[in-house]
Design a protein around this nucleic acid. Structure first.
Lengths: 348, 348
DNA sequence: TTGTAGGCGTTATCAG
DNA sequence: CTGATAACGCCTACAA
């Protein structure tokens, strides 16, 4: 493999000049540039990313932390592959590589070490929970001035850079869609309270009901864990009170589908199903029978946005990796959600 | 951030000794070790991964190339997230980090440059196609002696390190399951021929039919592109000849479900559906209505295996990153597939 | 068992 | 506009 020195020799210039040409830095005489490029081409020279990182003290990597994926599949693959694609494409445009890490079940991630070891210049955290260890790890990142972005989770009272969708509005839309059609007895199957997303959905549901002059019946508020199985389990409750329930709004598609399955298992026919609305508008919604009305979340765009913010904020790529912006610089702006209406929620 | 020199000073040893202790290299007096560890702990010293990479000329990264994910979602997110999890966990155990890259639509990947730039020490290629550019890129890798592994795609005549599942057997099992129950008019909806997986499925189908004293009716061999949509389209053909078809085997779950949807759209009732068998045993199979019989592929395990092979083969981690093994060292061993029987294929 | 010193391939600074 | 040259932080013979 050709070295830079060989290129320099062949081009009749110094190594420094080769470097400048290849990095497009500083003013270079056109002829010199051409000579260098030719020599480099001919020799098949490729600069070492490692050496460059070393010299610049920057890895050129964007870290992406993914949640632990248990057998139960609490998290939908759709969710993450969409976000990851968005992140990946945008990162590529910015010349960064993606370093992905899976959070492990027990272990509390020490995010700061990622930076200290210089494996990443910035990072995006997906599927975080609002628990003590997680919060502390992020606060440390913040204190040490490492650029990072949290997706799909809000930490109240903190000034983290966050990217999220408007789940309050998404949930309100879902409920409004139901009440508008005359459904009055709406059960809400939410996810665990430890995700801000769940709390936001609850709020949206309450707002939606209030708009229709109703309020959430505590008996009709159920909690699952975002897995299909938990939906199946919730179906037991729902089946038992089918006469007091005419619609079900679930906090994600997997649970909505789980409930449908559970009802079927109990011999309840589709025509006797309550109306259903899910959330995420994942593949599964489209594939479900009946096709599931669902709240679309722009995961892909959220991924892109997270990268843009990280880079655009001069948090990465600029000379100073110092402090991330102040709270006021990063107001919480939410991407819009949208209701996709399918057969499951249409009044028969 | 504490430097190694400070640690050395505090511990009263040389930097080299600090390095040895932290890397567990060479014989060290227990007391020295303790002193170094203490000093390092107290100062919060964290060695720079970049500098280490530089000194060792190894990035410590395992590259994972993912296919382009089009809007059409030809590839199932399930498929990749499972493989990625398997790869990720195993890689972590081996102290490697994952560098993921998305293939872009037009561009022919130059895999070799990844290595030349030293971004990765080894790489795993997912969702490769058997086309000219792809093959050439891999041959180059092979020639230059870079360790890599191809998953889910076989390149005949090449001696690449490959990890795949036994799709011939998986397909045979699917067909056998159908013929065993007396289904005789079996339509096969395959994927594009440019994936070896499709070819293997076809072979398995032929074997399965032959075992039952039948053979594949060319009119009942359909081709989709692994997307749900292509299944919906195939449903047109199937619906038109519903009297000549009593079972459908699709090369993946998405297409199987697409066919079901297509039939429903045409007003065909579930009780008049042909038997269905899908492939991959993805989430969707379980969520489908009726639940879809499918061939389980151990994607997670395949991911783990790929990493093991790459590492175990001393292809990575050892001093020599020279040639990858000879063909005979890497015979094509296939992970077992398994038929998961659900309602869709049970004789009513 | 430990210290010394050379080298890894770039970038960046400073002269010229 | 271009050429020297000093870091960069760690690993690893080699020497002691």
């Amino acid at each position: 493999m050709a070295s830079r020195k060989e290129v320099a020799d062949l081009a009749g210039v110094s190594e420094a000049t080769v470097s400048r040409v290849l990095n497009g830095v500083g003013p270079i005489k056109e002829e010199t540039r051409r000579k260098v490029l030719e020599a480099s081409e001919k020799l098949g020279y490729v600069p070492s990313a490692i050496a460059r990182s070393f010299a610049r003290s920057k890895s050129g990597n964007l870290g992406v932390v993914l949640p632990y994926v248990p057998k139960a599949h609490l998290f939908s693959a759709y969710f993450f592959s969409e976000m990851l694609s968005g992140i990946g494409n945008k990162a590529r445009d910015s010349g960064m590589d993606l370093l992905v890490m899976f959070r492990s079940p027990g272990e509390v991630m020490n995010y700061a070490d990622l930076f200290r070891r210089q494996k990443v210049d910035a990072c995006i955290i997906l599927g975080a929970k609002d628990d003590h260890g997680e919060l502390a790890a992020m606060q440390q990142l913040q204190e040490e001035g490492h650029p990072f972005c949290v997706m799909n989770q809000h930490f109240a009272g903190e000034s983290f850079l966050e990217v999220d969708a408007d789940h309050v509005e998404g949930s309100r839309l879902a409920v409004h869609h139901l009440t508008e059609q005359g459904y009055r007895k709406i059960a809400f199957l939410n996810g665990p309270d430890s995700y801000s997303n769940s709390q936001e959905r609850l709020l949206g549901v309450q707002i939606g009901l209030k708009e229709a002059g109703m309020e959430l019946d505590p008996d009709l508020l159920l909690e699952g864990n975002y897995s299909r199985r938990s939906g199946v389990e919730a179906a037991a409750t729902i089946a038992a009170r089918l006469d007091e329930i005419d619609a079900v709004f679930a906090a994600n598609d997997r649970m909505a589908i789980g409930v449908m399955h559970g009802l079927r298992e109990r011999g309840i026919e589709v025509q006797n199903f309550p109306a259903f609305v899910g959330y995420d508008d994942s593949d599964a919604a489209e594939m479900s029978v009946p096709p599931l009305t669902s709240v679309r979340v722009p995961f892909y765009e959220m991924g892109e946005l997270a990268v843009s913010k990280l880079i655009h904020g001069s948090l990465v790529g600029s000379a100073s990796t110092e402090a991330s912006g102040s709270p006021s610089e990063w107001p919480r702006e939410l991407l819009p959600t949208e209701l996709i209406i399918r057969a499951s929620s249409i009044r028969k």
